[in-house]
Design a protein around this nucleic acid. Sequence first.
DNA 1: TGTCTATATGCATATATAGATATATAGGCA
DNA 2: TGCCTATATATCTATATATGCATATAGACA
Lengths: 119, 119
Amino acid sequence: MLNGAMTERVARRFRALSEPMRLRILQALESGEKPVNDIVALLESSQPNISRHLKALCQEGLLERRRKGLKVCYSIADPMVFRLCDLICRSVTEQTRSQLAELDAISGNSRRTGHRARR
Amino acid sequence: MLNGAMTERVARRFRALSEPMRLRILQALESGEKPVNDIVALLESSQPNISRHLKALCQEGLLERRRKGLKVCYSIADPMVFRLCDLICRSVTEQTRSQLAELDAISGNSRRTGHRARR
DNA sequence: TGTCTATATGCATATATAGATATATAGGCA
DNA sequence: TGCCTATATATCTATATATGCATATAGACA
């Protein structure tokens, strides 16, 4: 159970994760820290756009920033974020599977699911 | 590692969770299914607003809908959602604790953290 | 200190969506 | 069938934000 302020904080963190481009950035950093230009090259987006997403993820506490010579490197602040994605991914996959089974049942294709077709 | 389509799906689910009002709806349903008017009363928002949020959560597969006499009841589709919130909540709390410790160290209050203050 | 490179920010545009208000619809029940 | 209640939707306004393009800034190094 979350109090009001915590609910707002949690919602803001979910929001930070609600953009495909930001999820792709996180995935790009899963194997370790990378400088901005590497991320730009990997994700094929504009440098300003990536920079702004990196800033948003930093402000939400999802990334850490450190200068390394001429470059600036970003890294995952808390690997917990990958557990979040994994949980959702499983849930989505499972639900899609159920929906498919339902469709099979309706169309009378009961071979794979074992469900009886509606008449 | 997520492919393109799954990244989009995961992002959409995060987005569905990125509104405080929707998190409050989920919490209201944690103890079991409830009809719309009960949720409206609990959350002190307008009925149309709650209805739209319920629809959004349903479409994202986070809630289930069932008619019960005159009323329509909504319930949690997958309790996994509370694990998500819990993970984020812990992470936020932990990060806030670290930040506090850092501030303590800077201001020379080393009693609790054991860190040395910067001169 | 000046310069050069990597990164960050300002501004404009397009799109999404939360909430308010009014109204439509669904379905139980007489 | 027709009515009544609970819920859903249409429309509007205000706000947020993703992206592109142009430009500013930071900091390493001569």
